[in-house]
Write a protein that binds this DNA or RNA. Structure first.
Lengths: 179, 179
DNA sequence: CCTGACATGTAACGAGTTACATGATTGA
DNA sequence: TCAATCATGTAACTCGTTACATGTCAGG
């Protein structure tokens, strides 16, 4: 399972509570791997049994206690082992593609409206990613070693969104040409 | 669930047995939505209870009987209804991105080897898709209405694979530059 | 005789989502 | 007083995968 490894990577960067991790999975890491807090707590429990992480309670003023997790040496070993195994190639999976394929059996105008909404969403996401790149990595030619991975992932996000937008444009053009 | 609708689209094009559908999900439709035969039989059962499809047994010579499914009017109505509801935007989900992000905690050379394998896989997939496009849609400027959806989905596949390959190239370059 | 294509399922499990459950503090 | 943020979980359910289960026929 990749969620465990996503958590290990996140904890290797910085210790965190389940709540902190849930917020990270809403932002940075969450751009390519989503997880709900419920699932995170569940998996953290299993990971602690497996000794990949350990926790200690931290009391706070005016706030609930929190359980701060950190990665163990066994966790670091597992990360090393996992990184050396080839990643299975994930097949594409797109409900939108199914719908596009079946346009002739559906509401053509609604599908086109959907394409326009998706195009706008891709556009917004590109703007967001590019602002993020500008802010965190203004000089991509001289990145620190520990920044490279996150930067390349961001680049992957930008490329994917640009492609999504280009696809929407092609679909709109094809449908307009046909009219 | 989209599998039900993928099956509806497939049956709207042509009646099929569970076995036939499983083969279609290994090829054309399967390029953007995978399903095992076990899952298909399970879902077909539910869809028949819901009256979206109906089946009749067909005896064959020298072969086992088969249950041929066809879409009902209710099934067509459902397809129309579904097509008019906006498709939820599927967030990216990539174990490979997690691994890339965590390269500093792993085996850098193994990750790079993985990138090269993935690049080759994208390249092969592009060749496959382009041959398919050439064979089925030699003249994209003049497509029949019932071909347009499948053609555009194929285009989406080509664009996605090209992007995947471009990303791999960027990763390889960045790691080589750093050395 | 053995493999592969044809044909249809069940059972057990794992991953992930949705709904439920609780409780403190801060600011509008 | 009401909503938002902080903080941690359980329970029920759905979707999908893997393993198991069975049997025919054609071709090498």
């Amino acid at each position: 399972m990749a969620l465990e490894h996503a958590i290990l990577v996140s904890l290797a960067e910085k210790t965190a509570s389940g709540y902190d991790l849930a917020r990270r999975f809403d932002a940075s890491i969450g751009h390519f791997w989503k997880a709900s807090h419920q699932q995170i707590y569940k998996v953290l429990g299993r990971m602690e049994s497996d000794k990949w992480v350990e926790s200690h309670l931290v009391a706070q003023d005016n706030r609930p206690d929190k359980k701060v997790y950190s990665i163990t040496n066994e966790g670091r070993d597992e990360l090393m082992r996992w990184s050396s195994v080839p990643t299975p190639i994930e097949p594409l999976r797109s409900e939108f593609a199914v719908k596009l394929r079946g346009t002739q059996f559906g509401d053509r105008e609604a599908v086109l409206a959907d394409v326009r909404v998706r195009r706008a969403a891709h556009e917004a996401q590109i703007a967001y990613y590019e602002a993020s790149a500008q802010r965190h990595y203004p000089e991509p030619a001289s990145l620190r070693e520990d920044e490279l991975g996150a930067y390349l992932v961001l680049r992957g996000g930008i490329l994917a969104e640009q492609t999504g937008m280009a696809w929407c444009d092609e679909i709109l053009q094809a449908f307009e040409a046909e009219r």
